[in-house]
Structure formats: C-alpha cells, structure tokens
C-alpha cells in the first residue's frame, strides 16, 4: 500500500512537469496552429539558466524567475523571427522548429559544456515527511502544487479574461477576430512566449528533481508532452491536463517495476488511444 501511495505521488509530480510542457504546446497548437518542436530546447534552457543563476545568487526563487524570463524572451524571438514567416505551413514549421532545436541545444553545450552539471534541491525543500511507512519527498509535493496552480491560472486566463476570450475565438477563426478590430498577432506572440516560459519553468523545476542538467534531457520530455497532447486531443487544454496525469502515473508505475519498459509503455498507450479514439480523449480543438 505504501508503495502505491509513493508511486502515486511520484506519478503526479512527473505529470505536473509534463503538464508544464504539454499545456503550452497544446495551446500553441490550438490557437496558432503551430507544431512547436522548440519546446524541448526551451525546457533545456530553463534548466541551464536556473542552475546558472542559482550558482550566482544562491536563491531558488530568483533562479526560477530567471529561467521563466529567459524562456519568455526566447519565445518572443522565436515567434517573431522564425514562426511568423511560416504560419499556415505545418511542414515548414516542423522543419524550422526542429532546426532551431538543434541550434539551441548545441548552443547550450557551447555555453555550459557537454557534460551534465549537478544541481541541488533548494534546502528548504530537500526534506521528507514520514507518515507511517511512507516516505514523501517534499519537493514532489511542491511540484504537484505548482502543477495545480498553473492549471488553475491557465483555466482562469482562458475562461474568465478578455485574453482568454480572444484565444478561444482565435482557435476557431483568427481572420474573424481580426475583422472585429483585434490585432491577433499580438496575442499569437504572447501565447507563444507564454508557452515557452512554461516549458522553461518545467525545465527549471525538473533539474532539482533528477539532480543534474544535461543537453539531452529535452527530447524525452518533449516526446512525452507530444504523447500527452495526442492522447488528450490536440489543442484541448483539459485533455492535456488529464493526459499529463495519465502519462505521469504510467511512467512512475512502470519505471518502478521494470524501467526499460517505460518508453514502450507510453508509446503503446499512444497507439492504443489512436486506434480506439483517434481524436483523443477530449476531442480535438484544432481547426483543420
């Protein structure tokens, strides 16, 4: 029983991290119609920037904020220079964002070296709680709370604000939004940068969990996030939340019992959903 509880918490924490990636990817896909393969590299940069700033300031909150800011700025630059010329051209988007991924992964190696850099958890969260036979890592609980807070914040943004209104309308028809006097490109840039910032946040929070940062950590998480958004239904925010939890729990449980099977299981899950429910668990919110 205590193993089950521990794995549940591990899984939810993992799910929270995947969600930070998947939420941004999904909204970018839904609103901008852009497949973004730079998410993995933003995740890496979030990780590197956070430990870099942490080593200089010694402050965990400042490190996190710096990572988020770096992600946001990179997002703005990517959107302006590379994404904007290829709106509406999926193939070019895939190719360009993959290329950017290669460039910025290598740039991270150039700045911070090819070897993994060890990172430590902030002291105030390195502790554990022991309840009976169950040992609970405080950092994982912290991750779960962050995940929930981000989900609530996005939900509020989408359903209760003017920005969210434009986003929901823009998913259906960006042209019509423009024809109502709204410059949707500003929203596009903001959403892209916001998604990028979330990915960087994910990277910054992932590093203390696994204890080091290395340039190869992006691709695996990006693939998990992609699996999540196909699983949940492309462009569906709720789908990405539920999908993240499913994948997080799957990863936690399978990797506890037999780690080598983890990748196969997640992909198998994806193929199963595609076979049984091709539009994803929550239906697609993407215009064709």
């Amino acid at each position: 029983m205590h193993i089950f509880l521990m794995l549940l918490i591990n899984g939810l924490a993992e799910g929270a991290l995947i969600f930070l990636m998947a939420a941004g990817l999904s909204i970018i896909l839904g609103l901008l119609g852009v497949v973004n393969f730079t998410h993995g590299v933003l995740f890496i940069w979030g990780g590197y920037v956070s430990i870099w700033i942490f080593s200089m300031t010694g402050s965990f909150p400042i490190a996190i904020i710096a990572a988020v800011a770096a992600g946001f700025i990179m997002g703005l630059i990517f959107e302006r220079l590379f994404i904007r010329p290829v709106y509406g051209n999926v193939t070019a988007q895939i190719l360009i964002t993959l290329g950017l991924g290669v460039v910025f992964t290598d740039m991270a190696r150039l700045f911070w070296g090819p070897n993994p850099i060890p990172a430590s958890r902030p002291e105030f969260m390195d502790g554990t709680w022991v309840i009976g036979a169950v040992i609970i890592s405080q950092y994982r609980i912290f991750l779960i709370i962050i995940g929930i807070l981000v989900a609530i914040a996005i939900n509020y943004l989408v359903n209760r604000t003017k920005v969210g209104m434009v986003m929901r309308a823009g998913i259906q028809s960006p042209d019509m939004v423009q024809a109502l006097g709204i410059n949707i490109k500003v929203y596009f840039a903001g959403v892209f940068a916001g998604g990028a910032a979330l990915a960087a946040l994910g990277g910054a929070l992932y590093v203390p969990l696994v204890g080091s940062v290395w340039s190869g950590m992006g691709i695996n998480n990006q693939i998990l996030a992609f699996i999540v958004i196909i699983l949940g239904g492309m462009g569906s925010f709720y789908g990405s939340a539920v999908g993240s939890i499913i994948i997080g729990l799957t990863v936690a449980f399978v990797s506890w019992f037999y780690p080598p099977l983890t990748v196969y299981t997640t992909v198998l899950l994806l193929l199963l959903v595609l076979t049984l429910k091709p539009e994803g668990l929550f239906g697609m919110a993407v215009r064709n």
Binding site: A169, Q172, D175, M176, L180
Partner: peptide, 23 residues
C-alpha cells in the same frame, strides 16, 4: 491591416456569420 480598417468604422457580417462557438 484588418484590425485597423474595422476600427475606422466598419461592421462586417461575413457569409458564414463568423460566430465563435466556444464563446
């Protein structure tokens, strides 16, 4: 650009109504 032309005082009722379902 369209978001500015509309602000000069044009109302537009498109062929497919342009109603947002998710709103």
């Amino acid at each position: 650009p369209p978001y500015n032309t509309v602000r000069q005082g044009i109302g537009f009722v498109p062929e497919d109504y342009g109603i947002f379902d998710a709103l």
